[in-house]
């Protein structure tokens, strides 16, 4: 669960790694070389132990999903039940609903944050006065640095009965809306929260990509009498197309991750049916109800879907001739 928000950037570094693999050369393993590199080898080994304990050992816990796990009997002596837990999961209406919620909100967030970041980057690039551009950009990062707790709190204030949004609705003669009392508002609220928080931050990478477009292209277009809109459409957008495609591909795997903190903090009993996600399901069953096996099974399902999504995205990229991750 930790740092799931960083997942998008994580994969960026992973991508970069692949590109540089080309220039590697091999040193043969000899005694003298091992001795010379003893510091490197020992350091790597210590970190390997750390990584094994904290990242690989939990994978062994996946056995629990196939057991009727009891803390008393432990991993080794609990009764095996095969795929029972998974059968239960897929026959559980609540689980089907949380999967739907997760994928729905994840997709909505992905599309909305994506489009907004690109639009914002392009429009900010068109602001010619540096006096305005710099402060706007600084302000745009601000929400990224606030925690979800703060963001949801702020959102809750704004959407409450006496909040600014209902004040505006009243001002225009409408009837106030109970935003957290009806199911139809929840997904758009989560979507807006994500857009609000991450637009400026996500735009950083597009702005960097825009800067690397050859200025000559713009000059040439100006001479040919192209207006701003024509230049955006014919130069800027095609220029950042590779970046857009790469980021889109990388984020597709995250669709299944897109939802825990906001949903957990803003959800309530009235809107549970649209706000609960897989992570909340795991939390309720796996931790609060102590059904470790069921919680693990749901977790495995999530991991598998995530990997499948990444592989499929990669395959599509390969077919369409775009850059790939692996």
């Amino acid at each position: 669960m930790s740092q799931s928000n960083d997942a998008t950037v994580k994969s960026r570094a992973g991508f970069r790694r692949k590109k540089q693999k080309v220039e590697e050369y091999k040193v043969p393993i000899t005694k003298a070389e091992v001795k010379k590199q003893s510091f490197l080898i020992i350091t790597a080994a210590i970190f390997l132990v750390y990584g094994f304990v904290f990242y690989y050992l939990p994978l062994g816990g996946w056995i629990m999903a196939f057991q009727k796990y009891k803390p008393k009997t432990g991993l080794l002596h609990s009764q095996f039940v095969g795929l029972d837990k998974f059968k239960f999961l897929f026959s559980d209406k609540t689980f089907i609903r949380v999967v739907w919620n997760t994928l729905g909100m994840g997709t909505l967030n992905l599309i909305a944050t994506f489009i907004m970041a690109i639009v914002f980057a392009i429009l900010l690039n068109e602001v010619r006065q540096n006096v305005l551009k710099k402060p706007i950009q600084t302000i745009s990062y601000l929400p990224h640095f606030l925690s979800w707790v703060i963001v949801t709190g702020i959102l809750h204030d704004a959407l409450s009965a006496n909040g600014i949004v209902n004040d505006i609705i009243r001002f225009f003669g409408g009837t106030p809306i109970v935003f957290f009392g009806e199911t139809k508002y929840f997904w758009p609220i989560v979507c807006f929260a994500n857009v609000w928080k991450e637009t400026g931050w996500n735009a950083i990478i597009y702005l960097a990509a825009i800067t690397s477009i050859d200025p000559c292209l713009y000059e040439a277009a100006s001479i040919d009498g192209a207006g701003r809109w024509a230049k955006i459409k014919n130069i800027t957008l095609p220029g950042i197309r590779p970046t857009i495609m790469i980021l889109l591909l990388m984020n597709i795997g995250n669709v299944i991750n897109a939802g825990f903190e906001v949903q957990y903090l803003l959800g309530n009993d009235l809107i549970k049916s649209v706000s609960d996600t897989i992570d909340i399901y795991v939390l309720t069953w796996g931790i609060s109800q102590s059904d470790f096996s069921l919680g693990t099974a749901a977790g495995i399902f999530k991991s598998v879907v995530s990997i499948v999504l990444i592989v499929v995205a990669n395959y599509i990229a390969k077919k369409t001739g775009e850059e790939r991750l692996f």
Binding site: Y55, P58, D279, V282, G295, T296, K302
Partner: peptide, 28 residues
Amino acid sequence: KFLFKSGVSLFWVITMYVNGGLVPVLLL
């Protein structure tokens, strides 16, 4: 020149994509 460079790198890259999940991690 590090002898086990690619192996060690792969070991860490995998951790970005696969994780045990909430429950196994808590028990660990």
